[in-house]
């Protein structure tokens, strides 16, 4: 187990060393979104009666930060190690494939959730936010981060250059996040786009997460939990098996 803890510690240290870039900067970005969108849209958009748009926006932005940072952590750690070649130290080490997977997963989840937590904390300074059910908040933050951590690891393993990770990020992660209802409730969309959104697993992460704050959501939190849970387990299985197979790591 020492091997596993060491790898986890190393991964945490890796982002903690550059905490301004990995945690503080994304929090600031989220706050800027919050400031601008809420200022422009506060009186024009009503999503749920008795929930102001600014309040509505905070969980969405927090979740978006969780997802993006969980993805960024896994993908950048792997691709950096591959490009600089120091991944051999890990490949030579007697740490089981499952422990390698778990250490990278946990480190990415911790980074994602830390940033999300930071966004909520920073928002509380300016905005009055209540929480309805803490349990759901944590569940959806962790599972959402887990899903994006897996995607990040897969992208990092698959990519051979940094810009290939960026492609993954810009063409898959970003669109799916934006189209998942971070800035709106899908009930405000035309019927067709509502259907499209429902086939996007990101929608369930954000909807369920938001339920934890307001006790209101587009679909039942149990349904979201089921969808998100199944996606997380499937992606974990895929990622673990890719690591185990040595794909692109052990040529």
């Amino acid at each position: 187990m020492v091997g596993f803890y060491t790898l986890l510690y190393k991964e945490l240290l890796r982002f903690w060393r550059v905490v301004f870039q990995t945690v503080a900067a994304p929090i600031l970005t989220a706050l800027l979104y919050l400031l601008i969108f809420s200022h422009i849209l506060q009186d024009r958009v009503t999503v749920y009666i008795d929930v102001g748009y600014t309040q509505f926006l905070v969980p969405g932005l927090a979740m978006m930060s969780v997802l993006q940072n969980a993805f960024a952590n896994g993908s950048s750690s792997i691709i950096q190690s591959k490009v600089t070649g120091n991944i051999v130290f890990l490949l030579l080490a007697p740490i089981s494939n499952f422990q390698v997977f778990l250490a990278y997963l946990l480190a990415s989840v911790i980074r994602g959730v830390s940033v999300g937590f930071g966004v909520v904390l920073a928002s509380i300074i300016f905005i009055n936010i209540s929480t309805f059910n803490f349990f759901w908040i944590i569940i959806f933050a962790v599972l959402g981060a887990g899903i994006l951590a897996c995607l990040g690891l897969l992208a990092g393993i698959w990519a051979e250059k940094f810009d290939q990770v960026a492609v993954f990020q810009n063409f898959i992660v970003m669109p799916m996040t934006f189209l998942s209802g971070v800035f709106y409730s899908i009930h405000s969309l035309p019927e067709f786009w509502q259907q499209v959104s429902r086939s996007n697993p990101f929608f369930y992460m954000i909807d369920g997460f938001r339920y934890g704050f307001f006790g209101k959501s587009d679909v039942s939190p149990m349904v979201s939990f089921l969808v998100v849970g199944i996606v997380f387990l499937s992606l974990s299985a895929v990622t673990f098996n890719v690591i185990k197979s040595g794909y692109k790591l052990r040529t």
Binding site: T6, L13, I95
Partner: peptide, 17 residues
């Protein structure tokens, strides 16, 4: 690994094993 010092590197390596 450009993130670490020599001592850290060797400590981490030991931990891996």
């Amino acid at each position: 690994d450009p993130f670490f010092t020599v001592r850290e590197m060797l400590t981490i390596q030991s931990g891996y094993f």
